[in-house]
């Protein structure tokens, strides 16, 4: 076997797999989005964008991402800093913190529904403590703030760990000597975090943020479980087009719009957190 061919041969199966199950369906979706059955058109995009639910679902999706991702980033950084200072029991704590990652997002939504619904744990607790006379319907259209909060909490609970594991790995790569040097030269613990940890963590932050932001635009099952139709998001609308309205072309067009938003944010993150040449660890 020629050593020049071997690497290509080794990546052939996965390339074929990706082409068959990712690129091909993607091309089909794109073709569907730009077609009206007879030829090329932008009508599908026009239709989905002008539909009255598009602005509100776009706004909801962006708002949710804007509320959830910064909190998750801050929490993940805090938790990662704590974990990396631990001498013993560090693995155990990490395992416990990453348990929510192993639960499907629909199951996570249902767990939080069990807390927030009218006969849920939160209501039982409030009634038991005498805070309310009778259970209140927290997740109703009269409480849009509460619905948003419940969804945000569930998302934070469910998906902070994905950022945590990436950041813990990133912090582990920063040599201890940098911290000692910073300490000797007068940096307080907070300054060390700002001036050493954060900048040296940029590659990990990039990965964690891209992953998390893209996932935030794909939020669906948690919203479906907790908000139902009260809180429309882009993914929910795609589902509705495809299965409720039986309009595959509109669903495809909306899916491409979500993809474009994801790509745009990815590029912004890559740009903002770029590491200059020669400035890597």
């Amino acid at each position: 076997m020629s050593p020049r061919i071997l690497p290509y041969l080794l990546i052939l199966p996965v390339t074929l797999f990706l082409c068959l199950f990712f690129l091909y369906p993607f091309a089909l979706v794109a073709q569907q989005a730009f077609s009206n059955g007879a030829g090329f058109t932008l009508d599908n995009f026009r239709d989905v964008v002008t539909y009255w639910k598009f602005p509100i679902s776009l706004q909801n999706t962006l708002l949710l991402a804007a509320a959830v991702v910064p909190v998750q980033l801050a929490l993940a950084l805090l938790m990662a800093t704590m974990v990396s200072r631990m001498e013993r029991g560090r693995d155990l704590v990490l395992y416990v913190w990453t348990i929510p990652l192993g639960i499907s997002d629909l199951a996570a939504g249902i767990i939080w529904l069990a807390i927030f619904e009218q006969s849920g744990f939160l209501n039982s607790m409030m009634t038991g403590l005498g805070l309310v006379d009778q259970p209140v319907n927290l997740l109703s259209y009269q409480n849009p703030g509460m619905v948003f909060l419940a969804i945000a909490l569930a998302e934070i609970w469910r998906a902070t760990a994905i950022m945590l594991v990436i950041i813990v790995a990133g912090i582990g790569l920063i040599p201890k000597e940098y911290y000692e040097a910073a300490e000797v030269f007068g940096a307080s613990p907070w300054k060390r975090f700002l001036r050493i940890t954060l900048p040296l963590l940029r590659p990990s932050l990039q990965t964690a943020l891209i992953l998390r932001v893209v996932l935030a635009f794909e939020v669906f099952a948690v919203v479906a479980a907790l908000g139902g139709t009260l809180f429309p998001v882009l993914m929910g609308e795609i589902y509705a087009y495809q299965f409720d309205l039986q309009n595959g072309r509109a669903a495809a067009a909306l899916a491409l719009i979500v993809l474009a938003i994801s790509i745009a944010f990815t590029l912004v993150i890559l740009r903002v957190l770029r590491v200059p040449k020669g400035a890597t660890i």
Partner: peptide, 21 residues
């Protein structure tokens, strides 16, 4: 006292020159 209050400076074995600065 903390290192910064001792009036010292240090040169480390692996230099510890901050890569991002």
């Amino acid at each position: 006292l903390a290192p910064k209050d001792r009036g010292i400076a240090m040169v480390f074995q692996n230099y510890a020159v901050f890569p991002h600065l």
